[in-house]
């Protein structure tokens, strides 16, 4: 069943590629504005052995990984604290509800003013934007822990900290993991956006800006393709990790269905 789903996805992507290729061949659109899919793919393949592009990829992925780590380090404890202390959660709730809907890209100009170091700037916007799903999932994950599960352990004489560590955290962990996966997608968007807006010396966003400056739409799209593929790949890896670590969670929700 899973294979069928993967196959359908491949068919969809291939169909899209063929359609773009057909548009190029038909001459409906000037190839300078929309290169043929085959040109983009050849360009993308060429980029793998381009040391300059590889250095850009390393810079982007480093910022992404560090940003995501920082996000987890900041948002998970914050979310758990707010989830465990309803009074504190109610106090910061309006602030969260106000800040969260602000498009994160809109804070990049502010970050440009605040940070002189390019990596610091990227990390700041990544952490700001990616923290929300982790924070929200940690709060709700912790708050929705089954009271009977907690009472069970309390009944055996375990104190509040033990109940938190042995029941609340494991119960909330799958939700937090989902939040981290969503955050990883947001982090890649923010990394490239920061590179596009703030400039700098290295990064996929910088490569795209330079390709645009050289009027190389094919290379722009080839680099974009790699950024997109990376997003798909990191999501797939995190889904696999979740399925493995939280088999009990998925087995239960599938049984309930």
């Amino acid at each position: 069943m899973n294979h069928v789903r993967v196959l359908r996805g491949v068919v969809g992507a291939a169909g899209f590629a063929v359609a773009v290729e057909a548009v190029g061949l038909s001459g409906l659109v000037d190839e300078r504005f929309l290169p043929r899919m085959s040109t983009i793919l050849v360009g993308a393949a060429g980029l793998i052995v381009d040391p300059e592009f590889l250095a850009d990829v390393v810079a982007t992925l480093t910022a992404w990984a560090l940003g995501l780590l920082l996000t987890v380090a900041v948002a998970v404890p914050a979310g758990l604290t707010l989830g465990a202390l309803p009074a504190a959660e109610r106090a910061v709730r309006p602030l969260i509800e106000f800040l969260r809907p602000i498009p994160s890209v809109a804070i990049i100009p502010l970050a440009i003013l605040l940070f002189s170091d390019n990596l610091h700037l990227k990390l700041a916007v990544i952490v700001y934007a990616s923290s929300w799903p982790v924070l929200i999932n940690a709060i709700y994950g912790l708050r929705d822990v089954d009271p009977l599960a907690k009472e069970t352990l309390r009944g055996f004489g375990f104190g509040p900290m033990s109940v938190l560590a042995r029941v609340a955290l494991p119960s909330a962990a799958p939700f937090i993991a989902t939040g981290v996966r969503v955050a990883s997608g947001i982090a890649i968007i923010l990394t490239v956006s920061a590179e596009l807006l703030a400039g700098g010396s290295e990064g996929i966003g910088i490569f795209i800006t330079e390709a645009a400056g050289g009027n190389r739409i094919d290379l722009m799209l080839a680099a974009t393709l790699w950024a997109g593929l990376f997003g798909v790949l990191s999501n797939a890896v995190l889904v696999a990790v979740e399925r493995r670590l939280f088999r009990w969670h998925h087995a239960r929700s599938e049984a309930a269905r």
Binding site: L148, R154, G157, P170, A251
Partner: peptide
């Protein structure tokens, strides 16, 4: 406070046992 020498068996075992 909660005595440390008693145990409880609840009706709802699926919620009382830890699935992980």
């Amino acid at each position: 406070q909660i005595p440390d020498n008693l145990a409880i068996v609840f009706q709802d075992y699926s919620r009382s046992l830890f699935p992980w």
